[in-house]
Amino acid sequence: MSWSWFHKLGSPKWFFQWSKKWAPPVFCLGVLGIVVGTAWGLAFAPKDYLQGNVFRIIYLHVPSAILAESCYLSLGIAGFVFLVWQMKMAPIFIKAMAPIGAVMAAIALFSGSIWGKPTWGTWWVWDARLTSVLVLFMLYMGIIAIQNALDDRVLADKAAAVICVVGVINLPIIKYSVVWWNTLHQPATFSFMKKPDMPEVMWMPLLICVVSFYLFVAGLVIWRMQTEILRREHRASWLKTEVVGDGI
């Protein structure tokens, strides 16, 4: 199998053409999966014996929390690629992905808070897990702010990439915060090593939600990258032909 299609994605022109084909199906599949997963989780999955229906927040909380971390990891890789190889697509990806990750982190914090009040008895507690996710949210805010604040685009992209790379240190802290320190937050629901500690009727819709959140974010980020390419390459002649060809 040839990797040339992958290398071509590094050029805005090829990516633009490729994305027009792939963004809609990936995005639609994601939306469909979220509808199926949440409907299954919220209406058909059994409630928890201890927490009752409050437990169903898991179908929003866990996917958004996983995505908040995954999005940041992808930003870290993109930042690294930009700093070392200075690929044109990397800062475009960072620009497109950062707000999505920020929203995911915000949803995780917000839904966790709503879950915490009836179960733990508090909206917020400064334990290691909650605090490190708040730091993650702040990092996203920093990336968005610095990429928009500096007028020199190359400098702005570099500064954002540095935050992306350095912030990756926070990811293992989030992941292992519930192991290294004693926290109010419980250990992870999903792990690669063992099956989740709940019956299949409960984790199946959760798995669907997690996978479709990934697809949804992938579709969304490809679309946002298209927009960013339009903004950055608006003088390029290939783009003009491309856009005229679409009849816009």
């Binding site: 014996y49 898991i58 179960t119």
Partner: peptide, 18 residues
């Protein structure tokens, strides 16, 4: 002055628990 409850990552339907 305040008591908070912890819960674990094990979830179970009520009938299974019973």
């Amino acid at each position: 002055s305040q008591v908070l409850a912890k819960h674990d990552e094990k979830y179970m339907p009520p009938d299974v628990a019973n």
